[in-house]
Simulated assay, not measured.
Amino acid sequence: MDGFKESGTPISQSIVANIQLGLPATVSKLSSKMRFIDKIAPTLKESGVIRNIELINPLTINASGISATNRTSNAFGGILYVAGAVRQDVLIDDGSIYKTRQESIVDVDEIDDLDNQKKLKFIDIINVYKLLGDLMEDDEKPELVLVDVPILLEQQDVPISGRKDLEKVYKQCVDTIEEFWVKYKEKIYPFDDNGIKIASVGNKRFGAVIFALTQDKVKYVVDDIDRNIIKNMNGIIPKLQDVGVKRLLTGILVKRTRTAAYEISRINEEERNRLEPQSVGKYEMVGMHIKAGNTTPPMLVEILGSKEVWTTEMLDELASQIISLITFDQQKAMPLPLWYAKYALKPVEATNNGKNVILQYYKSQAREMLKNEELESIWKEDLDVFEE
Rank of each mutant, 00 (worst) to 15 (best):
D216V: 09
L249E: 11
R247T: 02
R227G: 02
L240Q: 08
K231D: 15
A261H: 07
I252Q: 00
L213F: 01
A260S: 09
A199N: 02
R227L: 11
A208E: 04
K231T: 14
V254E: 12
G202A: 09
K246I: 01
L253S: 08
P190E: 13
N232S: 15
F191K: 13
I237H: 04
L240G: 11
Q215G: 12
A208H: 05
I225Q: 10
G244F: 04
F206M: 14
L253K: 06
Q241S: 15
V254I: 10
A261P: 05
A212R: 04
I237Y: 02
N232Y: 10
K187Y: 09
I237K: 04
G251H: 00
K231R: 13
T259A: 03
I229M: 08
D223W: 10
V209T: 02
T250A: 07
G207K: 06
D226K: 05
I196V: 07
V254N: 09
I198M: 03
P238I: 01
N203T: 10
E263N: 10
A208T: 01
G244Q: 04
V243D: 12
I196S: 02
K187V: 08
T214Y: 02
K231Q: 13
V245C: 05
Y220M: 14
G251I: 01
V201H: 01
I237F: 06
V221E: 13
L213M: 04
Q215V: 13
N234I: 14
I237W: 01
I236G: 01
K239T: 14
I210Q: 02
Y262A: 05
I210M: 08
K239A: 14
F191P: 11
K204A: 09
G202E: 05
D224H: 14
L248R: 05
I236P: 03
N234W: 15
N234K: 14
I198F: 01
D242R: 15
T257A: 02
D193P: 13
I252V: 12
G244W: 01
A208I: 04
F206V: 08
I237P: 00
Q215I: 11
G251E: 00
V243I: 15
Y220E: 12
G235R: 02
N234M: 13
A260W: 09
K219T: 15
E263K: 08
F211M: 03
N234Y: 15
D193H: 12
G251A: 00
G207W: 01
P238Y: 04
I225L: 09
N194T: 10
P190N: 14
I229K: 06
M233A: 10
D223K: 07
M233H: 03
V221S: 14
V221H: 12
T250Q: 06
I198Y: 00
I236R: 02
I237Q: 07
Y189K: 15
F211V: 05
Y262M: 09
D193Y: 11
R227E: 11
F211R: 09
Y262K: 08
I236M: 02
G235M: 06
V243F: 13
K187P: 09
K197V: 10
K187M: 12
Y262C: 05
V222D: 11
Y262D: 05
T250S: 10
T259D: 04
N234D: 15
L213Y: 00
Q215A: 15
I237G: 08
M233P: 07
D224R: 15
V245H: 05
V222R: 13
G195V: 00
V245Q: 05
L249A: 02
V201D: 00
A260V: 01
V243N: 11
